[in-house]
Every structure is written in structure tokens, then in C-alpha cells.
Computed example of a mutant assay.
Amino acid sequence: MDAPTPLSSSGEDAARGAERRLMAEAAAGGQAALAQVYDLTSAQVFGLILGVVRDRTAAEEVLQETYLHAWQHAADFDASRDTIAVWLCGIAHRYAVAHLRSVEAEAEAEGGAADEESYADRLSEAMRSLPPEQSQCIALAYYAGLTQFQIAARTAQTLAAVRSHTRAGLSGLHDHSQRARPETAATRTPEPA
């Protein structure tokens, strides 16, 4: 089966032009444009952040930092390179990783996490444990913010293959995290009496 055909260039050009105009208005301080960017992208951006930091309160703070940065640097947005969502997801990922590093540095300074691997290290190890096609689909979806259709077009795979690789990869990451998690009294299965 052939890979799906990408959007027509005229439709894509129109979408990029609309995003370019929206970000130009945001760069000029347009409140309505800022609100529209937030409404269109915040759910996706928040999902990415929450997946990295794993704490809702921290994710909300990182989301706020992400949009503050984006609004202060709206003029830097280049519609020929990225969509608004991909651009914001890149900013969000950097802030989320910086937050994790800050938390880990504080914990190490307090002596609490000196022996533990960092979350980023564990995630990298888990991603390396996956077959390449699975880790590629997950990376493109969660770090680049691409849809499964966009991943299929970019990697010349069928949409069904992308869905299958993503599902299997997420399952593999879950299994890896379960194997790597130290057993605690709360998670131990009681032995029969």
C-alpha cells in the first residue's frame, strides 16, 4: 500500500499563511491573536509537558512559561519551517526538560537523588530499547508534535503502520518502566499464607 499523499501544496500554503498572519498579530501584541493561538494549541502543548514532568501543578507552570516565551518571541516564528503547534511543542519540551533538571539538581543538592538515574536518562534508555520504527514514530509524535498522518507522510509509511508502531512503542515504554521501577512494599504482591 502506498504512503498517504500529503496535503496539497496550495492548502498547506494557505494554512501556513494563516499561521504567519496570526503570529504576526501576536507579535504586535494582539490580544485576540494570542488567545486564538492558546485556544488552538494549549491542549496539545499541555499534554506534551505533562508527559515529561508527570506533575500537573508543575506542568501548568511550564505551560505558562512556554506561552510567555512564545508571546515574547512571536516574531521569531517561521511558518516556512514549522506549524505553530510544532514550534510551541519544541519550546515546551525545552522548558519541561529544564524543569526536570532543576528538580533533579535540587534533589541531588539535598542528597535525595544522588544514586538515581535522571528521568531523561531513563527515558532515553527506554527509547533505545524499542525497535527503530517504534521509537521514530513516538519521537515524531511527542517531541515534534506531528500527527500520525504527518508521520506517515514524512516516513513514507502507511497510516496503519504508524498507528501500529506508535501503539506498540507506547506499550514497550510502559513495559520497560514497569521492569525498571523498584519494587516497593505498596506494589509488592502479597505471598499466599
Rank of each mutant, 00 (worst) to 15 (best):
L130M: 08
H93E: 10
V86Q: 15
G145P: 00
A126W: 02
V103Q: 15
Y142H: 12
D82F: 14
A58Q: 13
I138D: 02
E104L: 06
G47D: 11
T166K: 08
Y142A: 06
Q148M: 11
H69V: 05
A79P: 07
T189E: 14
L48E: 05
L130V: 05
P132N: 09
S129Q: 14
L146D: 01
L146A: 04
R54T: 07
Y142Q: 12
Y119D: 10
S177M: 13
G90R: 15
S129M: 11
L159P: 01
S42D: 09
G111R: 05
E104V: 01
G169S: 10
L68H: 11
G17Y: 06
R188N: 09
E104Q: 13
Y38N: 03
G51N: 14
I49T: 06
M1L: 04
S135G: 07
L88F: 02
D82Y: 14
M23N: 02
T187A: 09
A92P: 01
A141M: 10
Q178I: 07
R181E: 13
V45R: 07
L100W: 10
A105H: 15
D115K: 12
R188H: 09
A153P: 00
D175G: 05
E108S: 08
T189A: 09
E183K: 12
V103A: 14
Q44W: 02
Q150F: 00
A28F: 02
S10T: 14
A33L: 06
Q44M: 07
E110D: 12
A85C: 06
L68N: 02
R188I: 01
T189H: 08
E25Q: 15
Q44L: 10
R21F: 03
